[in-house]
């Protein structure tokens, strides 16, 4: 402490003007800069090395022909990007990811909202239902993927056995081009539903009871009217937030693809992050993988920025 404060007292004692001394003291003290460097320095250095520079590096790699292990490096402009956008696998991956997100996101958000509304509409067993619906979000997805594989097994899986028993069509879910992506999306919804639910429950709790009372007095006392007049509009901002967060999570899906399908059959379940992993670490095509990474990054940042804008809006809302 004394080391921190001593310089500032020295500095102030040199000031001839007493009034300025008082003002000079709390302002930027040299000791504080020293402390700031000591405290923030390690984190900032690591942030630079582990986050900022790697992003710069990945962009740099994306515009060169660099390969793992080679020493030569030439600037090739957007050639990598032209290559990936001419690559059917990458395009399929992009398309699949869009489809996957467009199933998981609405499914998770609407499902989570419905569960949250159901839980909050009564008093009994709230904690129990909340815990159970949240459980899949906690459980190690890599392990649960193997369970889903067993469930979806074409001959001994519970799903096919049940479907056959009640006369529904059966399939080799994970080996059929038409079913594999929707099935992965169902697993994605299963995993993220509880997350959306918990966020919606928090949103529901924050709605002032007075508004429901006012709605009662105003005559909006039926379930649907209360929902339309108070609940949904008040959930609006949080719903936008949940939409983006869930979209981001769906966009980053990897474990199920890696474990269950490896992107197959064909490339029917190739998702962007899996493609990125394969190109970079299995085929070791660094420039190519880097270009995919940059595309991935751009999409993720766009989603996050949309979210930031929406949160700003939420502040103005009240």
């Amino acid at each position: 402490m004394s080391a921190v404060n001593a310089p500032s007292y020295d500095a102030s004692s040199r000031q001839p003007d007493g009034i300025r001394q008082v003002r000079a003291l709390p302002r930027r003290r040299p000791g504080e800069v020293f402390a700031a460097v000591a405290l923030a320095g390690p984190a900032m250095a690591l942030l630079l090395v582990l986050f900022i520079l790697p992003v710069v590096a990945i962009v740099a790699v994306a515009v060169t022909d660099w390969q793992f292990g080679t020493r030569s490096l030439n600037f090739i402009g957007l050639a990598n990007f032209r290559a990936i956008f001419a690559d059917d696998i990458f395009l399929a991956s992009l398309r699949n990811t869009a489809i996957y997100v467009s199933i998981v996101m609405p499914g998770t958000v609407l499902g989570g909202l419905a569960i949250a509304l159901l839980i909050e509409s009564g008093d009994s067993l709230r904690g129990f239902y909340r815990a159970i619906h949240f459980l899949p979000f906690m459980a190690t997805l890599a392990a649960m993927a193997t369970v889903w594989e067993a469930l979806l097994h074409p001959t001994i899986g519970l799903v096919n056995n049940t479907f056959a028993a009640v006369g529904l069509p059966t399939a080799n879910w994970l080996r059929d081009e038409t079913t594999v992506l929707p099935v992965l999306a169902v697993i994605g919804i299963w995993q993220n539903l509880g997350f959306a639910m918990v966020l919606f429950l928090a949103g529901l709790k924050s709605i002032p009871q007075d508004l429901y009372d006012a709605a009662d007095i105003d005559g909006a006392d039926q379930w649907l009217d209360r929902l339309i007049t108070v609940t949904l509009p008040m959930l609006g901002p949080i719903a936008m937030f949940v939409v983006v967060v869930v979209a981001l999570r769906a966009f980053e899906a990897f474990d199920t693809v890696q474990i269950l399908t490896q992107g197959g059959p064909g490339h029917a379940s190739e998702l962007l992050l899996h493609t990125l992993y394969r190109e970079s670490f299995e085929f070791l095509r660094a420039g190519y993988g880097a270009a995919i990474t940059v595309v991935f990054l751009v999409i993720a940042i766009t989603l996050t920025l949309i979210q930031a804008r929406l949160i700003d809006k939420r502040v103005h809302y009240q």
Binding site: P208, L211, A214, P233, M234, G236, Q318
Partner: peptide, 10 residues
């Protein structure tokens, strides 16, 4: 109401 309970979105 004490808090007025106006609907903030309307």
């Amino acid at each position: 109401f004490q808090s007025y309970a106006l609907y903030p979105h309307m």
